[in-house]
């Protein structure tokens, strides 16, 4: 099994690399801790001194606006010092330069790395190689995992549907290339939902997808029946050029979420999207901006949830949550 380097010897969170290997108690702890940062009256997020004197480096080897910004805001609300580094990799021996980058930053007395990288397993590699006092948070690695996104999605779902055990959740779109989908599927299963259903053409589903703990549908109309939560995924344009799909309009016709299709799901179903949205490709504007959409709440929740994860991961390093 996954030798859980994510926990320290006391079973406390140290790295946050993947949802895999965590139990329901820990995931619920994260959600509860995140909730404690939100002012119940106005929904504002408090500034707390939990990570005062700590240095957090946002190490982004891949472009990102939303994720990096909310990580930065979260770190600042925790009173940490934040350094943003955007590194575009061009060298062929990325492994070597990646390690060298880490070694150099370690020498600057850093306490935490928030890492985004285009290669699956990069965050795990950094966590294995880095000095023992440093925590690593995965902000997305290749097609592997994006666990903080999954947790903010769980937080958003819980705000609307507190009992996970009753839920049927549909994830729609490019599951094959989606680290978000992989992490969401793991989190939903650990939190005990009734069903996770993936809806996509075969070209956008990984091999043996059922083994991830999902049911499969290739038809949106059928797939949306009885669904409580709809999670849309972004469709990258390059999927058309690599012969995975014939074209945007056919995709929208088959798998695009319109008001009409939305009616097939349960009447109180919520619509989610990790962003950025391709309007008119995977989702109609009317749905994205409609009553059932919680897409902007997801973004807001990103701050509290990332605060919770960062604070909990630093407990071994003196933070008291």
């Amino acid at each position: 099994m996954y030798p859980n380097i994510q926990l320290n010897s006391d079973g406390k969170l140290k790295h946050f690399l993947s949802i895999e290997g965590f139990d329901k108690t820990l995931l619920t702890d994260i959600l509860d801790t995140a909730a404690s940062f939100v002012n119940p009256v106005d929904g504002q997020i408090k500034k707390v001194p939990l990570l005062r004197g700590k240095t957090i480096v946002n190490l982004f080897f891949e472009n990102s606006t939303r994720t990096r910004t909310t990580f930065e805001l979260a770190a600042k609300r925790l009173s940490a010092d934040v350094l943003n580094m955007n590194i575009t990799t061009s060298s062929t021996s990325k492994g070597e330069s990646l390690l060298d980058t880490i070694r150099n930053l370690e020498a600057m007395f850093v306490d935490m790395f928030v890492v985004r990288h285009a290669i699956s397993g990069a965050a795990h590699f950094i966590a294995q190689q880095t000095a023992p006092h440093i925590s690593v948070i995965n902000a997305g690695d290749g097609q592997h995992a994006h666990p903080t996104q999954a947790m903010l999605d769980m937080f958003t779902i819980r705000q609307h549907k507190p009992d996970f055990s009753k839920l049927r959740v549909a994830i729609i779109g490019d599951i094959l290339h989606s680290r978000v989908a992989r992490s969401e599927i793991q989190a939903l299963n650990i939190l005990g939902v009734q069903e996770v259903r993936v809806i996509a053409p075969k070209t956008l589903l990984p091999a043996k997808v059922e083994a991830l703990g999902v049911t499969v549908s290739h038809n949106l109309t059928e797939g949306l029946q009885d669904i409580d939560v709809i999670m849309m995924l972004r469709l990258q344009k390059e999927r058309m050029t690599s012969a995975l799909l014939p074209g945007e309009s056919e995709y929208f016709k088959c798998f695009g979420l319109t008001e009409e299709k939305l009616k097939i799901a349960k009447p109180d179903a919520i619509v989610m999207h990790p962003g950025p949205i391709n309007r008119g490709v995977e989702i109609d504007s009317k749905v994205a901006d409609g009553k059932q959409s919680v897409i902007l709440q997801q973004v807001s929740n990103g701050i509290a949830v990332r605060m919770a994860i960062m604070a909990m991961a630093m407990q071994h390093n003196g933070a008291i949550v």
Binding site: S120, D141, R182, K208, A211
Partner: peptide, 12 residues
């Protein structure tokens, strides 16, 4: 190309 590569998002 199987369950493990799918879980870890590895090119398979």
């Amino acid at each position: 190309e199987g369950a493990i590569a799918s879980r870890y998002g590895l090119p398979s």
